[in-house]
Design a protein around this nucleic acid. Structure first.
Lengths: 195, 195
DNA sequence: GTCTATAATGAGATAGAC
DNA sequence: GTCTATCTCATTATAGAC
């Protein structure tokens, strides 16, 4: 995509982010150069610095946007009447949301170690906020007697790991539809918490 | 660790591997330079090439050794009488083996994309061999009627993701002992497959 | 806003002395 | 087997023209 000189601030910005997202997911943050990103966008490397102060900020922006999207999408889910219903809603939401943005998800947890300490803390805080929502559902179910969970914190980590793992193998158009995958995982989650 | 000239082939080799393991796990393969590894070992960068033809081989060796250890350790487990017993043995083995070598585990699945195609294939083959063992256990249990699993392949992926996830948070000396963690996860796995 | 050019630094890998 | 020195190339980021 060769480009000529000109003014494209409104479209180049998103394109820089999109290129970085795709390249970071494919090769890893440390392995991707600003020149590669620039080539993908169709500008010279120097032009990227109109859109990001540096490479680190580019990574942080991608991860922060992803985590904020996760939390705000989750906030928009309909109210639930029971812990069991809440757990099903959470399970299906998690699978769907994550399967729709595999690159963001991959980066969000493969590149944590490439964040500077301050940025790392900010992302971790968002992640904990999300995990706490599942933990609260499990605790509510335990105190109502509908879940049998020995340790809600461990169960939280176990369920999230299991659900996020879908992204390692699920591909649209494969043997199973996303709806089928959701159903099978929901069955396993439900049984695993003794409901 | 400043070093003077001398002959240390028998100890330097393992030290190079150990330094690479630790640094790759901490910062990522792409972010670690041969000079960093050399500094950690206490030699000059050029000396590393007595022990590895290049940086890529260093990564591949670490991953291949890890996967081979996994498969051979698993082969040494005692025979089991039933699918239920086999599943419990697998679950406890997986948690224990992986928790004992967090750096190897981390590298083994964070650095897959940094393997050259040929090396990637070799590692993937070992990984699939391991996963197939769990899948066979689940299929045996289904055909004996002791497990209720809608899709053994999905259940395999779900269980492995759940178990490997332990490594993201478990620390020796934390709130729970490894034995307790094993027990809680085994309960969840058992229930999740309907046993 | 993008370009070209460049500064400053570091990378992987090799050669040859000891 | 390790050292020093070096080749060759790439990196992030900046400066100044347009």
């Amino acid at each position: 995509m060769a480009r000529t000189t000109g003014s494209h601030s409104d479209i180049t910005g998103p394109r820089v982010r999109a290129a970085a997202l795709s390249l970071f997911a494919q090769h890893g943050f440390a392995a991707v150069s600003m020149r590669q990103i620039a080539r993908e966008v169709g500008v010279q490397a120097g032009a990227l610095y109109n859109y990001t102060p540096d490479k680190q900020s580019l990574l942080f922006d991608l991860m922060q946007t992803h985590m904020s999207d996760l939390l705000s999408s989750r906030d928009k889910l309909p109210e639930t009447a029971s812990p069991l219903e809440a757990l099903e809603t959470f399970t299906r939401f998690h699978i769907r949301f994550h399967s729709e943005r595999p690159e963001e998800v991959f980066i969000a947890y493969m590149e944590l170690r490439n964040l500077e300490p301050e940025n790392f803390e900010a992302i971790e805080k968002l992640r904990r906020t999300y995990e706490d929502q599942l933990e609260n559902i499990l605790r509510a179910g335990v105190s109502e007697g509908v879940f049998k969970v020995a340790d809600p914190k461990l169960a939280t980590m176990a369920v999230i790991a299991m659900l996020t793992g879908v992204n390692t193998w699920f591909r649209e158009g494969g043997r199973l539809s996303l709806e089928e995958v959701e159903q099978i995982y929901w069955d396993m989650v439900r049984k695993s918490v003794g409901a």
